[in-house]
């Protein structure tokens, strides 16, 4: 398979970027999107051109490192997949593919397709944890948790923090990410204790980072490789309003 790639190239955070066009030859339909980029990079290296920089790690859809806007969609076409799990068979011979980095002010481009997502880390530092005093590891079954709560918390905890929600949102809002992190802790008894200060601190941090506002387009939910439901955003809004009305810990 032969493809035409239009890829964003940017030397570093300070420099002006631009699109470059490359041809990917001999693309095997069974390759993942990242493997296709590896092959293109081999070719570029042979020609003495700097390889295309892109984030990747586990390549099995669970780490959240890959972050490519492919043909106008975060992680490319298809629901519930990361770019590393996207296979070239979804494209056709001769297709033109545009590859861009995530675009958001809190995600500055580091190089080519690599963005700095440490704004997410700072949101987590603001409250995305439970305070545990030191001591022995508690028994796993010491606190009984109802199955529906455990399931719901697990649905939210599936978030891998890739940032596709921000990339896909017309407003570059991080509400789905923050909502998932707020909810997976608040749904469990261990996390419930600090739920109110957590939701305030994490939303404050999100706003400080300069993410946009949620205007309910639900693009985040459609782009999320873990298919996290936007009802977590409603849940977080509810939690936040309750906290604003009654700030004391419930």
């Amino acid at each position: 398979m032969k493809l035409k790639l239009r890829i964003w190239r940017q030397k570093n955070a300070q420099s002006q970027g631009r699109f470059e066009t490359y041809t990917a030859e001999n693309v095997n339909p069974h390759m993942s999107f990242l493997e296709m980029l590896d092959v293109v990079n081999e070719d570029l290296l042979g020609k003495g051109i700097d390889p295309i920089a892109f984030d990747h790690d586990c390549r099995e859809g669970i780490c959240g490192a890959c972050s490519l806007m492919i043909n106008g969609e975060a992680h490319g076409p298809g629901r519930g997949v990361t770019a590393c799990q996207l296979h070239m068979r979804v494209f056709k011979e001769g297709d033109e593919i545009t590859v861009e980095p995530w675009r958001a002010r809190p995600f500055p481009v580091v190089r080519d397709l690599v963005v700095d997502r440490s704004s997410f880390d700072r949101i987590i530092q603001a409250g995305g944890y439970i305070s545990a005093s030191t001591g022995g590891v508690p028994d796993a079954n010491a606190i009984p948790i109802g199955k529906p709560f455990a399931d719901k918390a697990m649905d939210a905890a599936a978030c891998i923090g890739c940032g596709a929600c921000v990339a896909a949102c017309p407003n570059a809002s991080a509400m789905l990410f923050v909502a998932a992190k707020v909810s997976h802790l608040a749904l469990l008894p261990q996390g419930r204790i600090e739920a109110k200060p957590r939701v305030s601190a994490m939303i404050q941090s999100m706003d400080n980072e300069g993410f946009g506002n949620c205007t309910n387009h639900f693009e985040c939910e459609a782009a999320c490789p873990k298919e996290i439901n936007a009802d977590f955003i409603a849940r977080m809004n509810r939690e936040y309003l309750q906290t604003k009305i009654c700030p004391e810990v419930s």
């Binding site: 387009h217 693009e219 939910e221």
Partner: peptide, 26 residues
């Protein structure tokens, strides 16, 4: 909201294909 949202994405996408949003919402 509009100003904050514009500021949140200073460089737009060359290609942006929203999947589920509606004409009314946009």
């Amino acid at each position: 909201l509009t100003f904050e949202n514009r500021k949140a994405r200073p460089i737009g996408y060359r290609r942006y294909d929203p999947e589920v949003t509606t004409y009314a919402a946009r």
